[in-house]
C-alpha cells in the first residue's frame, strides 16, 4: 500500500536580492529585486508502507522542502500530495497524530525544564492514556538508556542524551510515519549507532514508515531499504537501495599528518589520494582494508597523528554519479 503519494509537486521560493552599495539600497527602497528559485520541480513519487526511505541530495537539492511538504509545513505551489490519505497542509488532527518528526537541528524540549515535563505535555497533546504513557516511556527510555536523565533540566544534558530525549518525545504517540531530518547530527559513533539500531527495531515492531535525511553515510547505508535522490529539485533516482548497493563500496577517509616530508605518491597503493599538503595527506581507504592499511602506514612512515572519518552521503551521491549507476 502506498502511504505517501505525490504527483507533480512544485514549489517555488522568491528570494529578495540585496543590492550592493548606497545606490542599490536606495533603489531597493522602491523596488526590490526578487529571484525565483524552484526548490521542487514537478516531482512525483510513491512510498510504500513499512519502508525506510533515505532522502539524499546535495545542499539545495530540495530535501528539506520535500520533507516540509510531506508534514504540511509548507504548501506546494502546484501538484498534490497525500500522506496516509490526508492532505498534509490541512493539518487534520488525526493526520498530525499519525506522524512523528525529529529535526536534528531544532529542539522541541524545553531548555529550562526536564525532558519529563515535555513528555507530559506530549501525553496531553496526543491524548495518550496514563498506562500507555507509562509503558511507552519506560520502554523507550530503557532502550535508549536515558532513564537517569529524564528529570534533569534539558540544559544540563549532553547532546546525545538530548537527541535521544527528542526522539522519545516524537515517538510517545507511536506514529505510523516518522520523518527524521539529520537525526544523528553532531553525535559520536556510539550514540549514532545506538539511534540507528533503535530506529531499525522501532520500524520492525510497528511496521512504521521512516523517511530519513542524513549527512552520515552509515545512517543511509545501514537503515534505508529505498532511496530517493534529488538533484536541483528533481528526482534522479527512486528505487530499492539494493539495486545499486552492491556497486557501492564502503570506505573511510584517513587523514594523516607526517612529521617529515616523505614521498607521498607511494601511498596511492593503499587507496586513492584525495588531498596532499606539505605534511598531510587524505587517503580514501576501503572499509575492509582499514585495519591492515593503518598498521602498515604506522610501521613504514613517521607519523605525527592520524584520524579516520566516515564517508558522507555526499560521497555516496558522487559515487553513484561517477559509476553512472543512474541516468542524470
Amino acid at each position: 500500500m502506498h502511504i505517501i503519494k505525490a504527483e507533480n509537486l512544485t514549489r517555488n521560493f522568491e528570494r529578495v536580492q540585496i543590492e550592493e552599495g548606497l545606490k542599490g539600497s536606495f533603489k531597493s527602497l522602491f523596488k526590490r529585486k526578487k529571484i525565483k528559485t524552484t526548490a521542487l520541480n514537478n516531482i512525483s513519487f510513491e512510498i510504500e508502507e513499512g519502508t525506510i526511505v533515505g532522502l539524499i541530495g546535495s545542499n539545495g537539492a530540495g530535501k528539506s522542502t520535500l520533507i516540509k511538504s510531506m508534514v504540511g509545513l509548507i504548501k506546494p505551489n502546484f501538484g498534490e500530495i497525500l500522506v496516509d490519505g490526508y492532505n498534509p497542509h490541512d493539518k487534520k488532527k488525526s493526520f498530525l497524530k499519525s506522524i512523528g518528526i525529529v529535526l536534528g537541528q531544532k529542539n522541541q524540549l524545553w531548555w529550562d525544564l526536564s525532558p519529563y515535563e515535555t513528555f507530559l505535555l506530549h501525553k496531553e497533546i496526543y491524548e495518550i492514556s496514563d498506562e500507555i504513557f507509562k509503558e511507552k516511556l519506560n520502554e523507550l527510555s530503557e532502550k535508549l538508556d536515558v532513564t537517569k536523565v529524564l528529570k534533569s533540566p534539558v540544559r544540563n544534558l549532553s547532546l546525545g542524551e538530548r537527541m535521544k530525549c527528542e526522539l522519545i518525545a516524537s515517538l510517545l504517540h507511536s506514529p505510523k510515519i516518522l520523518f527524521l531530518d539529520e537525526p544523528t547530527i553532531g553525535l559520536d559513533f556510539i550514540a549514532q549507532k545506538n539511534i540507528r539500531d533503535f530506529l531499525k527495531s522501532y520500524q520492525k515492531e510497528k511496521n512504521a514508515t521512516l523517511i530519513i535525511t542524513s549527512h552520515y553515510f552509515p545512517d543511509i547505508y545501514e537503515l534505508c531499504s529505498n532511496l530517493i535522490i534529488l538533484k536541483n529539485g528533481k528526482i534522479v533516482f527512486d528505487d530499492k537501495f539494493e539495486k545499486i548497493k552492491f556497486e557501492i563500496k564502503e570506505y573511510k577517509y584517513m587523514n594523516i599528518n607526517f612529521s617529515k616530508k616523505t614521498n607521498f605518491e607511494d601511498l596511492s597503493k593503499y587507496g586513492e589520494i584525495k588531498k596532499i599538503d606539505n605534511f598531510s595527506v587524505i587517503l580514501k581507504i576501503k572499509e575492509d582494508l582499514i585495519g591492515s592499511t593503518v598498521s602498515d602506514i604506522l610501521k613504514n612512515y613517521s607519523i605525527l597523528d592520524y584520524n579516520l572519518t566516515e564517508m558522507t552521503s555526499q560521497d555516496l551521491i558522487e559515487d553513484i554519479y561517477a559509476l553512472n549507476l543512474i541516468e542524470v
Binding site: L73, L96, I99, I101, L103, K106, Q108, Y126
Partner: peptide, 8 residues
C-alpha cells in the same frame, strides 16, 4: 514548525 506538526 514544532507547533504546526502537533495536534495543538
Amino acid at each position: 514548525s514544532k507547533y504546526l506538526t502537533k495536534p495543538i
